[in-house]
Every structure is written in C-alpha cells, then in structure tokens.
Amino acid sequence: MSVQTTEPKAGPPDPKPGIGAWGKLSRAIYRQAPEVFDNLRQLPYNLYKSIYRTTAFPKTERERSEAFFNSFLLHIQPAKIEKHALRFNYTFGLGLISFYLFLLLTVSGILLMFFYVPSVEQAYNRMLDLRSSVSYGMILRGMHFWSANCMIGAVFFHMCRVFYTGAYKPPREFNWVIGVLLFVLTLVLGFTGYLLPWDQLAFWAITVGANIAGKADYVSDHLAMIPGVPNMHMGVMMKNALLGGDTVGQEALIRFYVLHVALLPSILFFLIVIHFWRIRKDGGISSPKESPE
C-alpha cells in the first residue's frame, strides 16, 4: 500500500509581476493553487488513511492480519484464530454476551445518570418522571434493567460452560479466579443498583442485605471467646460502613450510588481487561488439542 504523493507542479508563468506585499501574496497563492486543489481531491482518502491505517476492504491474508494489528480496538484479538474457537456450540458466545451487556449497561447507565438524583426526597420521583416526562425514559430504564438481569444469567452460564469444558485447567487457573471475582462483582453491582429507585422492593431488600453483613458479628463473638481478644463487632462495623448509619437512609443511598455508578464499574472494567489479556496470553481459548487423549 503506497501513499500517493503529488509533486507540486510548476504553475503557469506569473501573469504580471505584482507590486509590494499584495503582489507577493497573490503570486504565492497562484503558484500553490494546483497542489491545494489536488489535496482537496484526495481529502477523503487521506482523512481515512490518517485515522485507520489499513485498507477498509482487506483481501489478502496479509491485509486481513494488518487490519487487526493496526487497529487499537481489534488488536486485542488475535489475527488468526483456531476454527474450533469459532464454533458457537462450544462457547455459546456467553462470555462475549456478558461483555456486550456490560457495554449496554454502561451506555444506558450514563444516560440514566442525567436524570437521576440520589436523594431520598427525589430518587423515587425521578423514577416516576422517567415514565411520564422523559422521552424514551422507560425504554432506557428497561434497557438498564434487562441488561443487568440478563448479565447475571449470562455470567453464571458462562462460568458453567467454562467448567463443563474443562477450560479452567492450567495455564488458565488464574483467569478462572478472575472470573469468580467478576461473578461476585456482577452480583454486588446488581445489589447496589437495586436500592437506587428507592421503592419498597429496594428499601427492604437492602435492609435485609445489610443486616446479613451485620451477622459477621458471629465471627467476632467467637473470636472474642479466646482470652485476650477484644470483641471487634465486625458485623456492626461492616453494616455501618455499608449504610453510613444503623438503618437504610440518605447516607446509605449516596454510598450505594457512588459504588454503583463509579467504583464498582471501574473495578469490573479493569478486571474484564485483565480477563481478556489473559485469554490471549494463555494461548487463546481452550481447545481439545490441549488434552492428551
């Protein structure tokens, strides 16, 4: 692929020698004009070329590989892939579906943030507004809701498929561990998001959930039976840290909000990136060629 270059052509002789600065300028424009015209003609191609470094319609094997190497978004993936890895009934695309749902959640979530206010006075009314006074508000909320629910299912079944195909065996042990963290984080994201509409379901689910954390007192109570060990009231501490108080209220809402829209998604994204990187480093996804049979 060679980039075309245009030699600046010598223009026709000057019509008449100009006088002063104006003359110099008009002469310069006159001389450069053909080149600029050429550049304008090639603008679409040059523009494309400056953004994307490979042809848009790769035909040879080499161009196809280059299409992957030369794109930031595509280079995460291998340029060549084993046929087995492409079989739909091997992975059922579940990992990728989980990732797509995460992307949909990010987009719909950011849009929802433009309307939502994390305050006990306003949150619920904002949810009602979404239904009554925001264009496509319900579809937006629906996309966030359904993506979240489906993502939990997709991640669970992805984990099952990884187990049932033995894909966690060396060298992929650590990617499985990251996977378990992703599974837990996905559930925690669901939990924190559940409080935000501030309706009855939300309030009582989180009340019960936070009190479950409070049951960690069981551990510190038992530890305290060892002489010399103070009772740390671990459960009460965890519950207070989670809710910012004894009961679910404004403090809890703002905490869950920040966790849900900033902290947890960032951690999840970070882990997903490592997850994908490890798939590459572990030699692509698992294949029957790896077992002795």
Binding site: Y124, I139, R141, W146, W198, D199, A202, A205, G209, V248
Partner: peptide, 29 residues
C-alpha cells in the same frame, strides 16, 4: 425488545414502617 414490551417493576415509594409481606430480594439473591 424486552425493554419495549416488558416494563421493569416499580413499587410504592420506600416506607420504613411498612415492610411488604413477603419482602423479597431481587431474584438472583
């Protein structure tokens, strides 16, 4: 399609004095 045809639930506003009976967590919990 799901978000167009299946509207996500929204109960009454949170009320610390009246737990619904039964009070259920989201399905995955």
């Amino acid at each position: 399609a799901l978000s167009v045809w299946c509207v996500p639930p929204l109960e009454k506003q949170a009320d610390a004095t009246k737990p619904p009976n039964p009070a259920k967590a989201p399905w995955y919990f």
